[in-house]
Design a protein around this nucleic acid. Structure first.
Length: 824
DNA sequence: CGACTGAGTCGGTGG
DNA sequence: GACTCAGTCG
């Protein structure tokens, strides 16, 4: 680690060598920001700073992981594992586990994701008898989230006249009431949402001087990445933590501030200089990533924003190619064009798949690209969208684990109390919740004392069995690893078996997903046992693996053997190794609730990457397709009303441009599907801001569309579309109108057998008494028409007839419900 | 009680 | 086009 300083340019070195006192690094895109941060950490340690005293906060787990790996590489020793590197949320969650009691929360509190939070909101909105058409959970959630990010508690919200007026004007006067109910419900459930991780930690630091002192002392050196995206809650926490020693180093780029919707404010960069005396400021303006052409375009575009910190990116890299501007007829054509272009670039320039990225404004845009890439057999990975842990079968499984760790977790309880079916249905559940609310206790407590609340004996049995089961799981927690508990739960509840039995393709997929879940828990436990340490305060360290671990063997879940209980440390409660706190189920749950989709996918795989521009922040690719540059989409229709919003959209455009190392395509379509309807869009206003000399308009259709969007003549359709291109893509017609139903034959298809033929009941249709119905009788069904009874089965109180209908095939009919007319 | 279906809805980015 | 929800059927 001797020569780490030699690899730095003068500005980078200046930043690294600054050890004590506040430091602000304004780092342009591709200017070696991560390198500076990691080298600075190494330098701090080389200068004698205790590694236990260094805190580095990032916005994504991926950034944290990368930083940790790079520090390790520079240092070449074990010291780096003592560093506190992680996202705001994960670091704070870890600390909160130790300090939760100060705000009245249990140590093993649950972290609610957005779905859980919205579900709680829906519940309280209904309980307050408010109209959920007006108070949509998602809208209310955003409002509450904003409040928390501004450190406004429910009480403060209710007492703030300005906020009350805003809500009244928006016709949602009851938000403060909902906020209060939501907060107290979460509290009752022992659960924090994402924003609570910041808010509650802030409250602890603010109201408990001993805690503040402890963490000020612990974190003598603080570094914050992507400072331009911090919100007021994060800002205040950093201010408190750094208040005593002022060894705070922030790195950011005001031009890349794109999280305004999450409460982030560029103000924080400006305020930083005011909060501390004598802030050292270093600007990194040399770009090592992109070509001159790409930087030229980026600089030009961002120049349209007002009030930014003065800086100009430059590079010693080559000139590079012009940026290709591409206009297609439809969104599907956009997909086809890009798939063809990738194919062609791979052949001509020998790019790998992984060197391409398709970056869009909204997740919904990914579909057209998926289809086009699949058609050409080009492998791709989508980052974002539904994460592994959001899948239903995974959430159900996790819900069991959650309820074991925190029995007050009502959301988890609701998911699994009758899954698999155990006779505690909706009616019972409603009553349970009602009683819980009346008594002001948790649903779990109602379950435990069900006998005293007058449940019927059958239901009572079911409840008591359920409580006993969860309790037996709970007793395992202390002495077993997360994996052992999870495995046991899957087996004992019949959860895994239920999925195993389902042989439909979805069922098989679900079964595999659950196996995958168990594998990942095993991997997590093994990984921890192999390398992590517990630091002096007893706070568990971050668990990012630093090298590829050996793949664990698949979980032993193959059914139908139900026997070998002995193998699992469970019944006797004596594991073969002493159990450390960091392999317990509660630690596992905390960790996964903060994982994003991007964290779970392999970024190094040789596949084309697709993601939103937000998700691409901090990444770089040889070839970038910036797609959907249309008004109403990019900039978003919701962000064109104020200068601030529009400038943030422009920064987003700046971010996507600066992701590209060598080649950049900017594409847009004349029409695209939205909610199943074709809509026409004008090209994005940002396209006009591109410098003409850096743009290749070969595929741009000769400027802006100003006449009808559905050209009628072939020549009009073709206008501006060169046919002479040697790109190989020229032979494709991205601009022809889609054929009408191209695959369908000209004749009417045969009615599919599965389609029901609607029967018009006879005029004299009167339901007969069917208690004596027997095989062989002819009947008429109100909907299915005439048929013959083939056989009778089912219990006496619930007879089921198998009937062969003339037009609709065989059906099983439950006579308790169906209306039949007996003909003979 | 659970599976299915038709109608209605949908404003975006994420930890 | 995809998802959710209320209502219906078995």
């Amino acid at each position: 680690m001797s020569n780490y300083l030699n690899e730095l340019n003068p500005q980078q070195r200046e930043a690294v060598l600054h050890v004590d006192g506040p430091l602000m690094i304004i780092a342009g895109a591709g200017s070696g920001k991560t390198k500076v941060l990691t080298t600075r950490i190494a330098h701090l340690m080389a200068s004698g700073v205790d590694s236990f005293r260094i805190l580095a906060l990032t916005f994504t787990n991926k950034a944290a992981k990368e930083m940790k790996e790079r520090v390790e590489k520079i240092l070449g020793n074990n010291e780096s594992r003592n560093l506190y590197i992680g996202t705001f949320h994960s670091v704070f969650a870890r600390i909160l586990r130790a300090e939760a009691s100060k705000v009245g929360y249990p140590t093993s509190f649950t972290i609610y994701d957005t779905d859980d939070a919205k579900s709680v909101l829906k519940t309280v909105i209904n309980e307050l008898h408010l109209d959920d058409k007006i108070y949509k959970p998602a809208t209310v959630y955003n409002r509450i989230s904003s409040a928390k990010n501004a450190l406004v508690t429910a009480e403060e919200y209710a007492n703030d006249h300005g906020l009350q007026q805003e809500d009244a004007r928006a016709n949602r006067p009851a938000i403060s009431q909902i906020y209060k109910a939501y907060a107290s419900r979460c509290f009752k459930n022992g659960a924090m949402d994402f924003d609570d991780l910041l808010l509650q930690f802030y409250l602890i630091l603010k109201n408990h001087p001993d805690a503040l002192h402890k963490y000020q002392h612990k974190f003598r050196y603080i570094m914050i990445d992507e400072y331009q995206d911090t919100n007021p809650a994060q800002y205040e926490i950093i201010k408190l933590l750094g208040g005593a020693h002022e060894n705070v180093c922030v790195v950011g780029d005001d031009a890349q501030s794109i999280y305004g919707f999450r409460g982030a404010t560029i103000e924080n960069i400006l305020l930083f200089r005011k909060d501390y005396d004598d802030v050292k400021v270093v600007k990194l303006e040399q770009n090592y990533r992109s070509t001159k052409q790409i930087l030229q375009v980026a600089n030009e575009v961002i120049g349209n924003n007002k009030g930014q910190i003065q800086k100009e990116l430059w590079t010693e890299n080559g000139e590079g190619e012009k940026i290709k501007l591409v206009r297609t007829m439809t969104d599907n054509d956009e997909g086809k064009f890009i798939a063809d272009s990738i194919q062609e670039q791979k052949l001509r320039n020998h790019f790998f798949n992984k060197e391409f990225a398709i970056l869009y404004r909204t997740n919904a845009q990914s579909r057209a690209f998926e289809e086009a890439l699949r058609r050409l057999n080009l492998p791709y990975t989508i980052f974002g969208g539904i994460s592994f842990y959001q899948r239903k079968e995974i959430k159900d499984y996790i819900a069991y684990l959650r309820i074991i760790v925190n029995s007050r977790d009502e959301e988890a309880l609701k998911r699994i109390i009758n899954y698999p079916v155990r006779g505690i249905g909706k009616t019972t559940l409603d009553k349970l919740i009602l009683v819980a609310n009346e008594q002001n206790i948790s649903v779990w407590e109602v379950l435990c004392r069900a006998a005293s609340f007058g449940f019927k004996s059958g239901t009572l049995d079911a409840i008591e069995n359920f409580v006993m089961m969860i309790r037996s799981f709970n007793s395992m927690l202390k002495n077993n690893t997360a994996y052992d508990v999870a495995f046991h739960v899957g087996k004992q509840t019949g959860l895994v078996k239920e999925l195993f039995i389902d042989k439909s393709s979805e069922g098989v997929q679900r079964y595999e997903n659950v196996q995958e879940l168990l594998n990942s828990i095993k991997e997590w436990v093994d990984d921890k046992q192999n390398r992590s340490q517990i630091d002096e305060d007893g706070v568990v360290m971050e668990e990012q693996p630093t090298f590829e671990t050996e793949k664990v063997r698949p979980a032993e879940l193959d059914f139908p053997e139900e026997t070998d209980e002995t193998e699992n440390t469970v019944e006797d409660g004596i594991p073969d190794r002493p159990i450390r706190e960091d392999v317990l189920l509660s630690a596992y749950l905390q960790q996964i609730s903060l994982l994003t989709d991007s964290d779970q996918k392999d970024e190094h795989a040789d596949t084309i990457k697709m993601m939103t521009i937000h998700a691409a922040k901090g990444l770089e690719f040889s070839c970038v397709f910036a797609v959907g540059l249309e008004e109403m989409l990019f900039p978003s229709a919701m962000s064109i009303n104020t200068r601030e919003e529009l400038e943030e959209e422009r920064r987003l455009f700046y971010v996507v441009i600066t992701r590209a190392k060598k080649r950049l395509w900017i594409t847009y379509a004349n029409t695209r599907y939205k909610f199943g309807q074709v809509v026409q869009n004008e090209p994005s206003r940002f396209i006009k801001e591109l410098p003409e000399d850096s743009i290749d308009r070969t595929f741009a259709g000769g400027g802006f569309r100003n006449q009808s969007a559905s050209p009628t003549s072939a020549s009009e359709k073709m206008r501006g579309w060169g046919t002479q291109q040697n790109t190989g893509a020229g032979k494709n017609s991205y601009y022809t109108e889609p054929k009408k139903q191209p695959e369908k034959p000209g004749y009417l298809p045969v009615t599919p057998v599965s389609k029901q033929v609607i029967h018009q009941p006879s005029a004299d249709f009167v339901a007969s008494d069917t208690s004596e119905l027997q095989a062989g009788q002819k009947i008429e069904h109100q909907k299915f028409g005439f048929g013959e009874v083939l056989k009778m089965e089912g219990a006496a109180h619930n007879p089921i007839a198998t009937i062969k209908f003339e037009l609709n095939g065989e059906k099983k009919i439950m006579l308790n419900y169906a209306k039949l007319r007996i003909i003979e």
